[in-house]
Design a binder for these strands. Structure first.
Lengths: 151, 151
DNA sequence: CCTATTTAGGACTGAAATGGTCCGGTATCC
DNA sequence: GGATACCGGACCATTTCAGTCCTAAATAGG
């Protein structure tokens, strides 16, 4: 699997909808209608996205949300990090000292590299990219891993 | 997050331990001792790995397990697929017709591409690679995504 | 042939995460 | 001042996950 949570998936959909009206402010109800995601869920997502600084909010009548930055400058990795924390395939790749086997585990260093590579790849796809109708993808090779010692 | 399950994590450790003795057959108890993973868990892992054809098993006295192929020919993606199913970041990347929004969702095609890229990256790291002490990684650029004209 | 060893397969349980909902409070516009 | 809409949090039902255990089957060795 290696699956994103459903919330994150929906979060991307909401972000994409928000990208459609970059300047307009849209409220949670509108976004729910536009995306087909249940309203309370949309609310929850927007709150988290706001706290993480990915969207700006305006309270009160005629309030709503809009992207904090141009869609080109918001990556999938940003959205994932906002909704489910930073990418880390294994426990040990994220935090130190939780495993007990760390000192003798040969795998750990490798996981970190792989981890960074995937995060890098995800960081190279923007919300704007995801919003394009077609399937052309301007994405980078996963900088961390690929390149030999030289890098 | 985007985290592997703990079982998969342990599974990699077991595979690495198995790679240490490519020709010797090792039983579940030995592997539990060598890896520090609880015996019942090791058993469970080995059963699954066996069913997926990643290891071969021998029953009876002096039985045990060994890698079905050279460690160089078993990728991380193989192990992940064996233990938690094929890599698929989103529901829609794996199965058709479960979402209801599929026909109108612009994101779907993009997710598939990203998905393939990550799977590709994971497929380029072997158990043998993971077993090396150092941190040099012979990994490929994530063939699916990158490729664009420039790169 | 008999016994000890070791995997095969599945059932089961407790704990944790996840998705989803709702409520009282606060800020803003008209 | 009233209506609108976000803010923060608590809350619950469901599912998934990790981990354990038991019985059956197969093999090696005496």
């Amino acid at each position: 699997m290696l699956r994103l949570s459903k919330l994150t998936d929906y979060g991307m959909v909401v972000m994409a909808a928000l990208a459609d009206a970059e300047d307009d402010t849209r409220n949670a109800a509108d976004l729910a209608t536009a995306t087909g995601v249940a309203l309370p869920t949309v609310r929850k997502l927007l709150k988290r996205l706001n706290r993480s600084g990915l969207v700006n909010s305006a309270r009160g009548a005629r309030g709503g949300y809009r992207l904090a930055r141009p869609a080109e400058d918001i990556s999938i990795a940003d959205v994932i990090a906002a909704l489910e924390g930073p990418v880390s395939l294994t426990e040990c790749a994220a935090h130190d000292g939780l495993c007990g086997m760390e000192s003798v585990c040969r795998l750990r260093g490798h996981w970190r590299v792989i981890n960074d590579a995937i995060r890098g790849a995800l960081a190279d796809v923007s919300v704007a990219d995801m919003n394009r109708p077609a399937l052309s993808m301007p994405l980078q090779p996963a900088p961390g891993i690929a390149s030999s010692p030289g890098s």
